[in-house]
Amino acid sequence: MAFDGKRKTLATTVGVVVFMGAMAWASVPLYDWFCRVTGYGGATGVAEATDGRILDQTIKVRFDASLEKGMPWEFKPVQQEMTLRIGEEGMAFYEAYNPTDRVVAGSASYNVAPFGAGGYFSKIDCFCFEEQVLQPGERVQMPVVFFVDPDIVDDLDANRSKHITLSYTFYEIDLPEDMQAALATGDAGSTTN
């Protein structure tokens, strides 16, 4: 009988360990999905276009930029803020500069504050949708096209927001394989972003 109790305890322990491992593995994609669906944590939506509704109410959008530690670029918003009508399409630019003597690839993460407004902030096009590669000394202006969904005025928590801050953080990533191969063969001059 004691041996059956030990087997049961062992099976339960193994089951708990497997369950916890599965939950840890799935937590990041589930959390990302949850944030994108609800706007929690400042995650934004992605849209093809506005739905055509433009309200007389305005909202101020502020732009913020930062770099992860070790990222050698310079990165900043071209304009600090803009005011637009809720539902109206806006376009802002961010500038990145690679002051180094090497090719550097980067990817941008983003969020929106206040967090409750994230679900109503939709991007139509954004440099953050794909990796960016800058040649030595290259400076680029990168657009983000967006709108604030008019449904924000019906949300009792989010409708108090008179401004929204869109923040990006650039971090360095590995160069794409084709660029690494071109650099290895000395043919980097023929690669493009």
Score class of each variant (00 low, 15 high):
residue 83 T to A: 01
residue 153 V to Q: 13
residue 91 M to H: 01
residue 145 V to K: 03
residue 130 E to Y: 13
residue 74 E to C: 04
residue 92 A to D: 07
residue 186 G to C: 12
residue 143 P to I: 06
residue 152 I to E: 10
residue 151 D to N: 05
residue 135 Q to Y: 15
residue 84 L to Q: 12
residue 153 V to E: 14
residue 178 D to Y: 15
residue 160 R to N: 08
residue 155 D to T: 02
residue 79 Q to F: 08
residue 141 Q to F: 05
residue 175 L to R: 03
residue 106 G to F: 13
residue 154 D to A: 01
residue 144 V to G: 07
residue 98 N to R: 00
residue 129 F to V: 13
residue 162 K to V: 10
residue 129 F to H: 12
residue 156 L to V: 03
residue 72 P to G: 11
residue 188 A to C: 06
residue 107 S to M: 09
residue 78 V to N: 14
residue 165 T to I: 11
residue 97 Y to P: 03
residue 65 A to P: 05
residue 122 S to I: 00
residue 118 G to V: 08
residue 90 G to T: 14
residue 100 T to D: 09
residue 182 A to I: 05
residue 64 D to Y: 04
residue 86 I to N: 15
residue 150 P to G: 10
residue 187 D to M: 01
residue 166 L to E: 02
residue 63 F to K: 03
residue 126 C to T: 09
residue 94 Y to H: 15
residue 143 P to C: 06
residue 137 G to E: 09
residue 184 A to Q: 08
residue 84 L to E: 11
residue 141 Q to C: 06
residue 84 L to V: 09
residue 166 L to S: 13
residue 171 Y to H: 13
residue 65 A to I: 00
residue 79 Q to L: 03
residue 127 F to H: 01
residue 154 D to L: 00
residue 107 S to P: 10
residue 58 T to W: 01
residue 174 D to Y: 01
residue 100 T to A: 02
residue 63 F to R: 07
residue 165 T to P: 06
residue 61 V to F: 00
residue 80 Q to F: 10
residue 81 E to A: 10
residue 64 D to N: 02
residue 87 G to H: 12
residue 182 A to V: 13
residue 56 D to A: 01
residue 142 M to D: 14
residue 132 Q to P: 06
residue 66 S to Q: 08
residue 70 G to Q: 08
residue 99 P to D: 07
residue 124 I to E: 08
residue 67 L to K: 11
residue 78 V to M: 06
residue 56 D to Q: 08
residue 183 L to Y: 00
residue 167 S to N: 07
residue 128 C to T: 10
residue 56 D to I: 02
residue 101 D to Q: 14
residue 129 F to G: 12
residue 184 A to N: 10
residue 172 E to D: 12
residue 92 A to E: 15
residue 108 A to K: 07
residue 174 D to H: 02
residue 72 P to L: 11
residue 157 D to H: 07
residue 60 K to H: 04
residue 105 A to Q: 06
residue 135 Q to C: 03
residue 89 E to A: 13
residue 123 K to L: 12
residue 82 M to D: 04
residue 59 I to D: 06
residue 183 L to K: 11
residue 83 T to P: 05
residue 132 Q to R: 01
residue 95 E to W: 10
residue 71 M to K: 09
residue 64 D to L: 00
residue 87 G to N: 12
residue 127 F to Q: 03
residue 137 G to K: 11
residue 69 K to P: 04
residue 72 P to S: 02
residue 115 F to A: 07
residue 165 T to Y: 03
residue 99 P to M: 04
residue 118 G to F: 09
residue 56 D to Y: 12
residue 142 M to F: 09
residue 84 L to C: 00
residue 124 I to A: 03
residue 163 H to A: 12
residue 167 S to T: 06
residue 175 L to P: 00
residue 172 E to A: 14
residue 160 R to G: 00
